[in-house]
Design a protein around this nucleic acid. Structure first.
Lengths: 266, 266
DNA sequence: TGTTCTTACCGTCTTCTGATGTTATGTTAT
DNA sequence: ATAACATAACATCAGAAGACGGTAAGAACA
């Protein structure tokens, strides 16, 4: 059973998808041998090894002679490939909704989230615009656009997130102040936003301090989970945007605690 | 006559090469119409317009109804595509020579020069390594490598250079101190290094302050030219590396003024 | 030393991006 | 209003990058 990660969308190249599936498989089984994976996925040993090398580079698994073992789940969850595979249509809808908040001439900050990335595709029509981000895929996309001032937030590259972070990044953020911030997190409780990784929290907190209007992008999958670090209370955000698939009984508690929640139509 | 930019090497995609040639053509003629270019280069109007759009995005030409005109030569010279086309083999040789200065574990800073980019291809075998750079092509290459800590220097994106600059970048540089710096300039006199653009000078100066050992990479074409801004005296560099094609009578003056010059074998 | 697992190298194949031209629509000048 | 020019949209095509497997060489373990 070729353990499918999400059933849902497919925006990924074949190897990337298989790698995400292998990652899931490894996480599920704790530790497996290369040959197990050969059987499970019907590819050659060579390919399995290449996939595992890549996953190790991203920090998702640990290789040793005879097989691989999973790293803490937190790493897996923040793995870019995995995230890209998740709730793509919802993220697009949320992005379309968020777009309405942006006027030409504004300065916008984006964090290293796939939700924010969906937003980038809509920028072309809202020029001129100043965009600051530490997310490499976003940076790459933005370099090709005219009439957009791109402010790259540098820092230490993380292969897991495909973004820049650490203290250098936090400092770069602190030197700025943008009109808008669009960011996402890995988990949302009725009162707070959460994230697994301290390093990321560091940068996101700095971003929250460096923007006038803060917007949290939340697809419904986030609402039923938690994570280690409490990033900020939801009331720190001016708007929380959720997708239409979010059950009403999950939205109401947020509002009860004072959050401004908007629902994006698909 | 299809004014060839450099005659020399060809490491560029067809459109990029044609764009460089068009740029040269425009610079030469001051201003031309789209139809002129259609004839001169034997492509469709559409393609010409696309090329011109791209060149305008890079700041090399200015479009108006009925044609295009050239921007100051300085911009043309610092155009990335143009530089990539120039003295590729020499740069590779210089890079191989420079490589010997790097030991595993060191921290290295690179500026936004194609000379430095040639060096990146050699990093894979000198791990572990910490590399800081503001040059997007270099950043992209480095993200794919293992055992290299990549420290991206953020800042304002410049399409002309395909790199990040401005004050944010200078600040990011100043927060660091690396073992080595490899950089290049657009012109070298017997006593000084020069560059056309103030913004770039700003960043390069900061880099010079932020490294212990400074290395200047100079292919022979640089030695017979000058540029607006005096970047620094050559004695500020610990080593100046030139390629083998450099005439002896151009090298000697540098040495006479106290520079340490090394010649890279092809 | 033998076995098992891993890596390096190479050739083939596929896939996918990106370049290009054509036609149609829009825009600016005269 | 009409002509010249510019852009947009679309379909096709080519080239290049990447994926993949096989074999052979190498490293770790027992």
């Amino acid at each position: 059973m070729t353990s499918d990660v999400d059933g849902d969308t497919t925006e990924l190249s074949r190897p990337a998808r298989r790698q995400a599936e292998i990652a899931a498989y490894v996480v599920e089984h704790g530790s497996v041998s290369a040959n197990d994976l050969v059987e499970a996925f019907g590819v050659s040993v060579m390919t399995v090894h290449r996939d595992l090398d890549e996953l190790e580079r991203q920090g998702v698994v640990r290789k040793y002679r005879g097989g691989v073992s999973a790293q803490p789940t937190s790493v897996f969850e923040s793995n870019v490939a995995y995230r890209l595979n998740t709730a793509q249509t919802e993220k697009t809808a949320i992005a379309r909704h968020a777009r309405a908040m942006i006027e030409p001439g504004m300065s916008v900050m984006l964090d290293d989230s796939t939700s924010a990335l969906a937003l980038v595709d809509l920028f072309e029509d809202i020029t001129p615009l100043t965009v600051a981000t530490n997310f490499l895929p976003a940076i790459t996309k933005l370099t090709a656009l005219r009439d957009i001032t791109l402010l790259a937030l540098g820092g230490i590259y993380s292969a897991t997130h495909d973004s820049f972070g650490g203290m250098p990044c936090a400092e770069a953020v602190e030197a700025l102040h943008t009109d808008l911030l669009f960011c996402s997190v890995s988990a949302v409780s009725p009162t707070h936003a959460f994230h697994q990784e301290e390093e990321i929290v560091l940068v996101k907190r700095a971003m929250l301090r460096s923007a006038k209007t803060k917007v949290l992008l939340v697809d419904h999958a986030k609402l039923q989970r938690t994570a280690l670090h409490r990033l900020a209370p939801l009331t720190d955000f001016d708007v929380v945007i959720v997708d239409e698939k979010t059950p009403q009984d999950l939205i109401q508690p947020l509002r009860d605690h004072g959050a401004t929640v908007e629902v994006a139509k698909l």
